[in-house]
């Protein structure tokens, strides 16, 4: 479709390739080095290089020693590869008085992410299931409020949640943060599951009810096993989202239990001491590693996740 349309556009090629148009079937013989291809792939390669550049700079900087960095070219590959910055970033970099490196933040983030992902998906999947197959009066009203709520800037709800968590006695703890992530993950996940379960054939649901299965029976025995892909999509969405969170971490936890992103920011943007750019970049990569691995491992499912997350309704 589109590439054939280009023939008209690409002046000189139009005459060369026009013979191919006479044949009704089969692939059009193409010259690899047509002007169109050079422009097309040239643009794509330049843009791709631009997008990859920061990743490249991060990696090479983290492998250089400070003397080499002071010589001054961020793009040059390391003359002498050293892993010391990585070790230092992980084990001994300082934030305030703590000098046990990013490892503390990493484990905090793990302890935040795992329960948040499990809890938010468990709640949202059951919610979506109830909304699509067991609708009750008023359910849609609450769902509408939930979806509209997804557009409200978090800043508006920051302080009321502080009060709620303080009343519950979990302000400043990991438990509190897990609860916050569960709350803010709910709109998008509920929508995701509701839409998915709504596409399940109704006969299946009716047959199960005739056989005497109840609300939980149908959920655990029928819906759960047949909707694993959507659970994976939800997991990708939540793992990257929660791991990358900064605002909730900084508002609802205290320095000892700061998640990794907050600790990373404190390490790199601390005003004390000499700036160690190689350690900073190593710390930055380490923090980005988890979502990057999830991204590269999940491939098209990630795209599906953000498309589901982005295009509401």
């Amino acid at each position: 479709m589109a590439d054939v349309g280009l023939i008209d556009h690409a002046g000189t090629d139009a005459r060369v390739d026009s013979k191919a148009l006479e044949g009704p079937r089969g692939a059009r013989p193409r010259r690899v080095l047509s002007r169109r291809n050079i422009i097309l792939y040239g643009t794509l390669f330049v843009v791709a290089a631009y997008y990859l550049l920061p990743l490249y700079v991060m990696v090479v900087t983290s492998l250089k020693g400070m003397p080499e960095i002071r010589l001054g070219n961020v793009f040059s590959p390391p003359m002498e590869i050293t892993f010391e910055p990585w070790v230092k970033a992980w084990a001994t970099a300082c934030t305030g008085l703590n000098c046990d490196g990013l490892s503390r933040g990493f484990w905090n983030s793990v302890r935040i992410t795992i329960p948040s992902v499990i809890l938010s998906i468990a709640i949202a999947s059951v919610n979506g299931y109830a909304l699509s197959l067991w609708r009750f009066k008023g359910a849609n009203l609450f769902f509408t409020i939930l979806i509209v709520g997804a557009f409200i800037p978090y800043q508006v709800m920051l302080y009321p949640i502080v009060i709620i968590l303080r009343e519950m006695g979990i302000y400043g703890t990991l438990t509190g943060l897990v609860l916050v992530h569960t709350i803010f993950g709910m709109p998008i996940l509920t929508l995701l599951f509701r839409n998915y379960f709504a596409s399940v054939p109704e006969e299946l649901f009716k047959a199960a009810r005739v056989d005497g299965a109840g609300f939980w029976g149908i959920y655990f025995k029928i819906m759960l096993p047949m909707s694993l892909p959507i659970f994976v999509v939800a997991m990708i969405l939540q793992v990257t989202g929660i791991w990358n969170d900064f605002l909730f971490g900084v508002v609802y936890t205290k320095p000892g239990v700061y998640p990794m992103t907050v600790q990373l920011n404190n390490i790199v943007n601390s005003v004390q001491g000499v700036k160690e750019y190689n350690v900073n970049m190593a710390a930055t990569i380490i923090t980005g590693l988890v979502p990057l691995i999830v991204y590269f491992a999940s491939g098209k499912l990630f795209v599906r996740g953000i498309a589901a997350g982005a295009v509401k309704g």
Partner: peptide
């Protein structure tokens, strides 16, 4: 891929 990274990174 940059979209998978946090704003902090």
């Amino acid at each position: 891929y940059p979209f998978a990274l946090s704003f902090i990174v």
